[in-house]
Design a binder for these strands. Structure first.
Length: 809
RNA sequence: GCGGACGUGGCGGAAUGGCAGACGCGUUGGACUUAGAAUCCAAUGGGAAACCGUGCAAGUUCGAGUCUUGUCGUCCGCACCA
């Protein structure tokens, strides 16, 4: 069979029959199967796309054949830095390169033979899409979930531009490897922290990979501790955050982050010079230095003292950049006896160390950071760990100086980018009225084409006079637009909602359409999005729910990560490794079906692994074998249903076992074992076909089921065989075979007979026997009887259908 | 340092606590061929055998690749978060 030509033929027929769309009128249960949409930065689909979309499409086809009304849309995450960087390098406008790439990829995606519903296609760079991305921004702004503040961002001094966090790899610019510095800019943020608790607690109920959930938990970083208010001798109050309030009597100094608002205020005149120098030094420190835990700690004394509220003791106030301004209160109490960092710092600067915790039943070596018995701490001596913390927190609370406090590591999401190729932020800056949101009826704020996007440290849009100059929607006076664009992750935070109603020009989506299709039942994509896209999308869903636009809590009920296909050398495929495998070469040689089938068979889906083309020949051979066998069987003229004996029963058993296992495996995304079951069935069928006398009716019936089973795996191939063997309609319209439990009951089962847990022999026994009967018949076996002679059987373990274990004294 | 995952033939990989290595690749032998390719058939964890085998060491169990503890190694994520 010439797979390539039949693939084109079937793709055309499917399209003509509109076979693949979601049926809005259908009564069947809906199933929303979604793959993460493609990013059109490269011109072509790579192996990773095929690996994500091919097997998932097989799952979708399987569910469709099972009777679900499957919705499987596809689109393009088309804004973003790679297109812009490509433009900077080559001068090709991002819009032009993106549109060209999308056109190519659309063609390739269709050639894959996936049942994407192209009527719902979306491209995030289209005005009809980013209009609604801007609308989302406005809703969040209205709700108080979008705000502007000055913040440090990643700045690449060589590229003269701000970088997204994900573009900073180990503190260096992803493109030029220059060390990134921090720079304060006024930025837009989304208040994702408002949902920290729900984003955390909601994870428990999700059918997601444990690893991904744990990464999100980690990222959200909930910590339960205590806030304690200290006051300087001059009366300035500030709070510290600690998880170890049981050590509060051991505080010998406090530390503020250099960026702390009180840092300068608390500095005495004689310390002014040193402190200013330190603050300047800390601000200059680059990401690598600042993030390194191995780095020696530095700090400076402010000259002021703070009063410890629990014991009235005055302790020096220091500044040090090992305290982060953005976490907790930006200030900590230092207990060098019981914290490694404080200990190192105290040693270096000669600060006192006071032990207030003792190891239970052992020598206390400082710094001692484990839980222990409280000593030298007022009435709390003798308490331990959690008990001590509860008591001391209650005490602090009673003093009115703070109390228990939950903190999250999660920060608000910085969404503004000083970049061209993204959705413009829909606000106007008016000299009179301040920040004014663009009225919804004026959306979209169009992204102009003729922009100088070469980086020079300012937002490219800022240089576009026509774009920037506008009138204030409130007072009508002259005003400026916001020159920044939105992070592309904003676009992808709601695209799964837009698919449900992709062509709506009045709303981002109709509530009814979304209610009908969402949430996504199965979402498949790379694990690298664990703490970005997958978190942002959850946030959007919850925010939209609270604004009344939808009525569910989580966007993705079930999540599957495909593994990564590595180069043949075991490294990630990359130009620098020179190990890129092009899917096109294989698709041209073996066809899309064989290529997809190999991706399913050659790897454990969630693991991935190094590419090897040995296996692709094997699956091509398998398809060939199936074709010959099915066509041969189909050509048998007679249709007699005789004989029907043990051989026939075995074949029927093989069929139903395959059906049952394939069904289970597909459900679990265990594609490699599913294909193995098909191979077993083919082996059984070929074996039976080799018999001299055979039941042709049974053969034909099993061959027919085989073709149906193959439908999700090799869709073009299956349709071709289906047609050639007289099938009506498309395989996709047939019912996926259902295993008959009766056929799976065998008359006899093979038992492993063990004596003292060692296998002695194997024996076939009728399935109908009770455990006692099994035990009795095993004991009667001559070989067993001999071995048991003169011994007592102390115990007999029978595992029905499996084994018998005789424990002999 | 913290968190997560994983260590099984020559290779990719299978195994609800119950016959380890399904399925496939590769290899070997055979058939068909002038010959090769393709195809088909058979064998294939190690060992002559008793037996031994799931990184290593213990433990629980009638029974452990699977559960528990420790240990070594690999991969991934986070990392001065007080």
């Amino acid at each position: 069979m010439d797979l390539k030509s039949i693939e084109k033929k079937w793709q055309q027929r499917w399209e003509k029959a509109k076979l693949h769309g979601f049926d809005k009128k259908s009564e069947k249960p809906k199933l929303y199967v979604l793959e993460m949409f493609s990013y059109p930065s490269g011109a072509k689909l790579h192996v990773g796309h095929w690996y994500n979309y091919g097997p998932t499409d097989s799952y979708a086809r399987f569910k469709r054949m099972q009777g679900y009304n499957v919705f499987q849309p596809m689109g393009f995450d088309a804004f973003g830095l790679p297109a812009e960087n490509f433009a900077i390098k080559t001068g090709v406008h991002p819009k032009d390169s993106t549109e060209k790439n999308i056109a190519t990829m659309e063609g390739q995606l269709k050639a894959m033979g996936a049942m994407f519903d192209w009527s719902a296609e979306i491209k995030t760079c289209g005005e009809d899409y980013y209009k609604w991305t801007q609308w989302m921004f406005l809703q969040l702004y209205k709700k108080g979930l979008a705000y502007r503040k000055e913040a440090p961002v990643n700045w690449c001094p060589s590229c003269q531009t701000v970088l997204a966090n994900e573009q900073v790899v180990d503190g260096r610019c992803e493109r030029c490897s220059t060390v990134v510095v921090r720079k304060n800019l006024t930025q837009w943020f989304f208040k994702i922290t408002e949902y920290a608790e729900e984003l955390l607690s909601g994870l428990d109920a999700l059918d997601w990979p444990e690893k991904t959930k744990s990464m999100q938990r980690n990222w959200i970083g909930k910590s339960t501790g205590c806030e304690i208010e200290f006051a300087s001798e001059s009366g300035e109050k500030f709070r510290v955050y600690t998880t170890r309030c049981d050590t509060v009597y051991g505080v010998t100094y406090v530390v503020l982050a250099p960026e702390h608002p009180l840092a300068r205020k608390l500095t005495t005149p004689d310390r002014r010079q040193a402190v200013e120098a330190y603050i300047a030094e800390a601000a200059k420190a680059n990401e690598i230095e600042r993030l390194s835990s191995a780095r020696e700690k530095t700090g400076v004394f402010t000259g002021s003292y703070a009063i410890n509220p629990v014991n009235g003791k005055a302790v020096p106030i220091w500044l040090a950049d090992y305290v982060l301004a953005s976490y907790g209160t930006g200030a900590v109490m230092a207990v060098p006896a019981h914290d490694e960092r404080d200990f190192a710092f105290a040693k270096k600067y000669g600060l006192p160390i006071e032990k207030v915790i003792e190891k239970k039943g052992g020598e206390t070596v400082l710094p001692y950071t484990e839980d222990g018995i409280v000593v030298g701490s007022y009435t709390f001596d003798g308490l331990m760990g959690e008990e001590a913390r509860d008591a001391i927190a209650a005490h602090i609370s009673k003093l009115g100086k703070g109390g228990k406090k939950v903190n999250y590591r999660l920060r608000d999401w910085l969404v503004s980018r000083q970049r061209y190729w993204g959705a413009p932020i829909p606000v106007v800056h008016c000299p009179k009225c301040g920040v004014v949101p663009v009225p919804e009826e004026d959306l979209p704020v169009k992204l102009p084409y003729d922009v100088e996007f070469r980086p020079d440290g300012k937002s490219p849009l800022a240089k576009h006079e026509k774009f920037m100059n506008t009138t204030c929607p409130v007072c009508g006076g002259a005003a400026k637009r916001d020159p920044d664009t939105l992070d592309t992750f904003v676009c992808s935070s709601w695209y799964y909602l837009r698919y449900a109603d992709a062509k709506n020009s009045k709303m981002p989506f109709d509530r009814e359409a979304v209610d009908k299709l969402l949430p996504v039942d199965t979402y498949v994509g790379g694990a690298e999005h664990a703490c970005m896209h997958l978190l942002y999308a959850r946030f959007f869903t919850k925010a939209l729910r609270d604004m009344g636009y939808l009525d569910f809590d989580e966007p993705f009920k079930r999540l599957v990560h495909q593994g990564v296909i590595l180069g043949p050398d075991g490294n990630r495929m990359s130009k620098s490794h020179g190990n890129i495998v092009s899917p096109d070469d294989y698709v041209n040689e073996y066809g899309a079906d064989a290529f997809r089938l190999y991706l399913m068979f050659g790897f454990s889906y969630t693991e991935g692994g190094p590419w090897s083309d040995d296996g692709i020949k094997a699956v091509a051979r398998f398809l060939d074998r199936v074709e010959k066998l099915v066509l041969k069987i189909s050509a048998y003229k007679n249709k007699h249903e005789e004989p029907y004996g043990a051989e026939e029963k075995a074949l029927d058993y093989a069929r139903h076992l395959a059906i049952s296992r394939v069904t289970k495996d597909l459900e679990a995304f265990s594609f490699n074992t599913a294909v193995a079951r098909l191979m077993e069935l083919v082996n059984a069928l070929a074996k039976y076909d080799g018999l001299a006398e055979k039941n042709v009716a049974l053969l034909k019936s099993v061959a027919k089921d085989l073709v149906l089973l193959l439908g999700p795996f090799a869709p073009h191939f299956a349709d071709e065989l289906w047609e050639q063997t007289g099938g009506k309609g498309f395989v996709l319209e047939q019912r996926f075979p259902v295993a008959d439990p009766a056929a799976l009951v065998l008359d006899e089962k093979e038992y492993a007979v063990q004596i003292n847990s060692r296998i002695v022999l194997k024996v076939n026994l009728p399935s109908a026997l009770t455990n006692a009967e099994i035990e009795a018949s095993v004991k009667e076996l001559p070989e067993i009887a001999v071995r048991l002679a003169g011994k007592t059987v102390k115990k007999c373990v029978v595992v029905p259908g499996r084994l018998v274990n005789l424990i002999v004294g």
